[in-house]
Design a protein around this nucleic acid. Structure first.
Length: 216
DNA sequence: CACCAGGCAAGTA
DNA sequence: TACTTGCATGGT
């Protein structure tokens, strides 16, 4: 059985067990991009509170957020943790959006993929996962987002070497599956959902995991 | 109590 | 280049 078939069988198993994910949680490209920064190494539940704070204050707006004094921004996003760090990272991203497309993040979707990805990676605080999450979930580029769960899952199933880096994990999927934004969107979402419920860092409840049949 | 959560950058040797 | 550490809150 080839890699593409295996990956699609795993996808079907997860989708069949859990149903569609409807990711990313977030109503606008900007909300998704902000969430992508805030969720770095952080539980989504905490991020959700931070985003609610910004929403209720009517601040989910590039220029509005940039005009906000940093200490106030920090208070709004405090529940998401690393709030000083993330206030800076958010401002770096917002300044980028303001500079490139005058604050209209949707316009980034017209850009050449590779150039835009490189530009995002040039923003301090935006690494490969955050860049790809923004590209896939906010801007609809067909890119597969890799995260800690992805590495853990593929490693535990013996599909990739334990030392595989971000790009290798991403290529493992993208080299063999059709470049379909809906597919990559759902695939990453399913991996996170399965990871959260069955594949914690230390404990794994493999007996009831939808991917249990795929364990060698 | 320990450990984890949808990372990333800076520091050290 | 290859590790290590700081960043911070909230939940299990």
């Amino acid at each position: 059985m080839g890699r593409a078939e295996t990956l699609m069988d795993m996808y079907d198993a997860m989708l069949g067990a859990l149903g569609p994910s409807h990711w990313w949680p977030g109503e606008t490209p900007l909300e998704i991009a902000v969430g992508a920064v805030l969720t770095q190494n952080t539980n989504w539940k905490n991020v959700s509170q931070a985003i609610d704070n910004l929403k209720r204050a009517g601040l989910l707006d590039v220029k509005g957020l940039l005009a906000l004094p940093v200490p106030e921004l920090e208070e709004f996003i405090r529940p998401a943790g690393y709030f000083r760090l993330k206030a800076g990272r958010l401002r770096n991203l917002l300044a980028f959006i303001d500079r490139e497309v005058d604050g209209d993040i949707g316009l980034l979707g017209d850009r050449d993929f590779s150039g835009l990805r490189e530009a995002l990676l040039g923003v301090k605080g935006i690494g490969p996962e955050t860049a790809d999450a923004i590209l896939c979930y906010a801007l609809d580029y067909p890119v597969f987002v890799v995260d800690a769960y992805t590495a853990r899952m593929f490693q535990r199933h013996g599909l990739v070497p334990n030392e595989a880096d971000y790009h290798e994990l991403q290529a493992f999927v993208m080299d063999v599956l059709p470049r379909d934004v809906a597919l990559f969107n759902e695939y990453h979402a399913l991996i996170v959902r399965v990871g959260k419920d069955w594949c914690k860092k230390q404990k794994g409840l493999c007996e009831t995991c939808p991917l249990q049949p795929f364990l060698s």
